[in-house]
Design a protein around this nucleic acid. Structure first.
Lengths: 329, 329
DNA sequence: TTGTAAGCGTTATCAC
DNA sequence: GTGATAACGCTTACAA
């Protein structure tokens, strides 16, 4: 009914209710108004199926209640979970989330930022790799897992602490010669600290250790080659491995078992992320669990309050260790 | 530089370039304009860092280049992958995607739709469960995996065909008494046809079969109970199982192995979805693979062209079978 | 308290 | 081709 194809406006509601335009506006902005008027307006609005036009409102108020999330992809449980929690957290604050996927391409990341500037969102949460990400000073921005600049807040898990815990667990569980293995992007990020934490613990405590870093662009083969090179006389040179991600840990474990190395009997392995199998909910391996939901909620909180308060430029959230069958607990 | 805190407008650009406001507008809308003017405008815009205000444009043009995606969650690889592909497909068409997560709550689904109507998006893609989803006639809507109404396009995989293929494969691989197991929502959806396809094939070909359906709200325990009830004298009553999802297949396989039933030696199992392990990229089990990317791209295509053309109310996309180690290939 | 009117930044319609 | 001017739907002083 009513003129289909054209949404009713405040003017229509005003006419229908027999009140002035401004009165209708006030009703929809919770500004006090005579009770009889309020009722007339609400009734008329319901009859007409009126909804506030958020574009007109956004134009006027220069506020859109929209936040953009920039992510490499959703094709990885960590990113997917992060997006899920960020979306829910934003909705809880009555914000909506627009998602931009970059496939880790720095060029795409820049394009996203440009698009977003034009799309007039209220803020951006980004997990990016571009070395020189230029983001408008006036656009609230929170970075995840990557420190971009002194005036841009960054939220991440306590990667350093996680590395330390991993080293500590491995040695506590009897490892005499643990190894750190890393497969990741070649652009520096917070996650690099996982190795730093591990190395630092070992050095402080006089633990003999190894550490190898590989670039994911080259694939996982170099890691396998390295493992084979460490495999002599029927045993590995190391009795414990801390992998920079659960995925890498899975791949390493797989390869070790192919080589005839038993996990966790001969070599204990700890990953990082705390991902769970979709079917059983179990961890893929013993792991340092990231507080994904907290990271999400913290990022949202900081973003939404970036105007009012001043936050530390960097927030690192506590991780926990969880046994997952690849250590001798 | 420039008056920070206030984005430059077309008026500013016009003044800076020494041309009329309308001319600036034309330049940014690719409407022919004198070459010298175009250059002056572009130069001025660059100097000022001008960007078109999409809210003002949206208000005027009643077009927002925004599409909403309604999904139960991202905490399942199928949904995450779907969202990923839909987002990429939309961006390719210069649309942006706002994501709404409902946690499968019909009430939340309705709230989403209401929000979206107010947010003036150009269209909606939804994977929902609400029984009586009321969606505005004027708002282009494409449903995924659920037929909502005659005038609402629905895109899904060929669930019926997938069920048929599963039955066919199992029998071709030597099963004499296959079983269909389903664990899912109690609201009817396209995915129910997986069982229908399986049953139909068996009946037509005179295959002795079983079929049991369970509601996911009750958890997976009832399925386990059923399996145990089927387990007598050291063997299962069935020699093949088609599960309605890969997840269920994994759980069933796990339980069977606990009972001492060997997979695929004693019982062959086929799942549905075509999910892959994040570490190795392998299928979790032998499975009917959904063409997720095609579903995504088709939904986007139909949505963006829903105004111009008339599409069939229902599109089902071809699935394929992939061995995954739980069948005797 | 209620009504009026002036924009917010853009696009589209016309005279020039 | 160019350049005033009137909408688009809403908010907010300000006047009544």
């Amino acid at each position: 009914m009513s003129k289909t194809g054209k949404a009713p406006t405040m003017k229509d509601v005003a006419r229908e209710a027999g009140v002035a335009l401004g009165t209708v506006s006030k009703v929809f902005n919770d500004i006090p108004v005579g009770e009889s008027y309020r009722l007339k307006v609400e009734e008329a609005a319901r009859r007409l199926g009126y909804r506030v036009n958020s574009y007109a409102r956004g134009l006027r108020a220069d506020k859109t209640y929209t936040v953009a999330l920039i992510l490499p992809s959703l094709d990885h449980p960590f990113f997917a979970l992060l997006a899920d929690h960020i979306c829910v957290a934003l909705n809880k604050h009555n914000y909506r989330m627009v998602l931009d996927i970059t496939k880790s391409d720095p060029h795409a990341e820049m394009r996203c930022i440009r698009m977003i500037e034009q799309d007039k969102v209220d803020g951006v949460i980004g997990l990016t790799y571009a070395e020189d990400l230029q983001v408008d000073e006036n656009l609230p921005y929170v970075s995840i897992d990557r420190f971009i600049g002194a005036n841009i807040p960054c939220v991440s898990s306590d990667n350093f602490g996680g590395g330390r815990i991993a080293a500590e667990r491995l040695t506590a569980l009897g490892c005499r010669r643990p190894l750190f293995l890393r497969l990741g992007s070649d652009v520096p990020g917070e996650t690099d600290k996982r190795g730093a934490g591990f190395v630092t613990y070992c050095q402080i405590n006089g633990v003999d250790f190894g550490a190898q870093r590989f670039i994911d662009r080259h694939g996982v083969e170099p890691v396998y080659d390295f493992l084979e090179a460490c495999y002599r006389d029927g045993k590995l040179d190391y009795d414990g491995i801390f992998c920079s991600t659960d995925l890498l840990a899975c791949q390493v474990i797989r390869r070790l078992r192919q080589l005839g190395v038993r996990v966790p009997e001969d070599v204990q392995v700890i990953g990082f992320d705390g991902l769970r199998r979709p079917d059983t909910g179990e961890y893929y391996c013993s792991t340092i669990v990231q507080p994904i939901q907290q990271v999400a909620e913290t990022a949202v909180y900081i973003l939404l309050n970036s105007a009012s308060d001043q936050f530390p430029g960097f927030m690192s959230l506590p991780v926990t260790y969880a046994p997952g069958g690849t250590t001798r607990e």
